[in-house]
Simulated scan of single mutants.
Amino acid sequence: MACKLWFVLSVWLLLAPSEAGRQMPKLSDKKLCADSECSHPILIAQALQDYYPGDCRFIPIRQGQLVYVYAMLKDRGNLFWAGSVQDSYYGQQEARIGHFPSSVVEETHALMPASTEVKTTKWDFYCY
Rank of each mutant, 00 (worst) to 15 (best):
A16L: 00
Q49F: 03
L32Y: 14
V105D: 02
N78C: 06
A47M: 09
Y126C: 02
G54L: 04
P17E: 07
Y90R: 10
A71P: 09
H40C: 00
Y89E: 13
V85T: 10
L73V: 06
Q49E: 15
Y128Q: 04
E19L: 01
V105H: 02
W12A: 15
A34V: 10
S103T: 09
A47V: 05
Q92F: 12
D124C: 06
L111M: 15
M72C: 10
S10T: 15
A2L: 11
I42H: 07
D75S: 14
F100M: 10
M72L: 14
L111F: 07
M72N: 08
Q46G: 01
Q86D: 08
L13P: 00
L5Q: 13
G83S: 10
Y68G: 04
P101I: 03
I42T: 05
P53G: 05
W6E: 15
E117K: 02
Q93K: 10
S28P: 04
Y52N: 14
Q92N: 12
R96L: 13
W81T: 05
E117D: 07
D50F: 08
Q63T: 09
Y52F: 09
F125P: 01
M1N: 08
P53A: 00
Q63V: 11
C127I: 04
Y52S: 10
E107L: 09
Y51N: 06
Y90P: 00
R96P: 01
A95F: 10
M24P: 00
H40K: 15
C33Y: 06
G54K: 08
H40S: 14
P60A: 11
W12V: 13
F7M: 07
L111C: 06
V105T: 14
A95M: 04
I42A: 07
H40R: 15
Y126K: 00
V11M: 10
L73N: 11
A20F: 01
Q86N: 08
D75M: 12
A114S: 15
K122D: 15
C38L: 12
R76M: 10
T108I: 15
K74T: 04
T116Q: 15
G98W: 11
C56K: 03
C56G: 05
E19F: 00
Y89R: 13
I59W: 07
Y52C: 00
A45F: 04
V11H: 08
C38P: 10
W123T: 09
K30C: 11
Q93D: 12
F58S: 07
E106N: 12
D50R: 06
A20R: 13
K31W: 02
Q23I: 02
E94A: 13
E106V: 15
L9M: 11
G77R: 08
H99W: 02
V67K: 02
R57V: 09
E37T: 14
D35Y: 04
P101W: 03
E37C: 02
F125A: 00
C56L: 14
L13C: 09
P41F: 11
I97S: 03
